[in-house]
Design a protein around this nucleic acid. Structure first.
Lengths: 222, 222
DNA sequence: TCAAGTGGATAGTGTAACTATCTACAGCGG
DNA sequence: CCGCTGTAGATAGTTACACTATCCACTTGA
């Protein structure tokens, strides 16, 4: 197929497809002439994957490129791929990490990891992200994040156990590697939204149920 | 205090503080002269809150403005504030939602909510976000997200129950409202990072533990 | 034949989040 | 009261990102 059809089937505009080709997110099609190339189903699939990462997962174009590169480079090593996928979806840091409060927070995270015997790469940027959240809360007097850290870790562990099991249940290795990436990114989007919905439900339940759920337009109230 | 001190104590550069003032994220200080104003502790606290939202939570400046506005506007109604905070941290949609696959996915989410009796605002954008993730997975043949939706919901529900209880345990109403916002945003950042760490652990555990965790630099391997 | 479509290159657009300067003027040690 | 630092407020400039838009010399298919 040529770009026109690729565009129609994927829903991605042609200029955007060209942009992804330039940026190396999408491999070039097989050239049949100086200005003609042929794309296959794998290009369509790759394009859908890219759009899932960008539109649903909210990752940057640069990060999406890293992810698909890792998909190609680590076709045999799930741990390497997982590492690459996590690095790509992990935001660059901006907070100040030189304060003593931050180091206290980081130590708290390292303690948590040690006492649970978690097997994690000790230099994972995610460790610092947890410390960032704890430190930011701490600077505003929010000790609840520290207090609940164990519960957060319990939830994360049980969720991760299911997700990893699900990935490993896939028989085909290539499909499994793709699920590593999609599970990491789409699972995040899915869970985040469900958590917010669960907040609504639990708030209504624990506070007491109002006549109607919160309305955006107050004029419908009375 | 004047901007200089506010900047030093918060770690935010003076031009950025001025920018936040212009954008309405930070209320103006009490003017003492044509070119002098006085800021108090509440300005510092507000600034730390804004930076927590932006740097750690990754929300946009515009969204942060909405959140702090809601904090002021709904000082008495936690459900309204929760709704505003969620709307602010919920990304704008880009995926195509007109396909039949998407509507199937959305119906699946509505069924889940109905069968669990979740009390959620039926027009919540988060419902569409869940459908987005399911549909994106579905277009790539990932049925696992559908299969595990119930487990995701279980995890989200138990996490939300703890978080809402924690917020309601705060005696002071003003502090409680602040925790609604910080819990929504920082809790998300905290949990996301922990989930990734848990993925590393579970992968290593279920696949089999290699000699060393994944290395970024292969030259240290041998 | 010939309009529609294409690959590749280059340039332009719009938004977001700052960052820099400029202009008075205030505060304060000497 | 001199002069230096430090403002507040206004305006303009910068950087990064993710596209969009054109142009050109082709090729394709009716």
């Amino acid at each position: 197929m040529r770009v026109g059809e690729l565009s129609k089937r994927s829903g991605v505009p042609i200029p955007t497809i060209k942009y992804y080709l330039r940026e190396g997110l999408l491999p070039a099609g097989a050239a049949t002439a100086a200005n003609q190339a042929d794309y296959g189903e794998e290009h369509l699939r790759r394009l859908l994957l890219i759009r899932a990462l960008i539109d649903v997962g909210g990752v940057s174009v640069a990060a999406a490129r890293e992810v698909v590169a890792a998909l190609g480079a680590h076709a045999d090593d799930p741990l390497e791929l997982l590492s690459a996928a996590q690095t790509a979806v992990t935001p660059r840091h901006r907070p100040d990490r030189e304060t003593p409060e931050w180091h206290t927070a980081k130590q708290r995270v390292l303690d948590l990891i040690a006492e649970r015997g978690w097997l994690v790469y000790p230099l994972s940027p995610e460790i610092d992200l947890v410390a960032d959240a704890l430190a930011a809360g701490g600077s505003l007097g929010v000790t609840e994040l520290f207090d609940n850290l164990g519960r957060y870790a319990d939830s994360a562990a049980s969720l991760a156990a299911v997700e990893v099991r699900t990935v490993l249940d896939r028989p085909d290795p290539a499909a499994r590697m793709e699920l590593v990436v999609l599970g990491t990114v789409l699972g995040e989007a899915l869970f985040s939204a469900l958590r917010l919905l669960a907040h609504q439900h639990e708030s209504a339940r624990q506070i007491g149920i109002p006549d109607a759920p919160p309305q955006k337009n107050p004029e419908t109230a009375q």
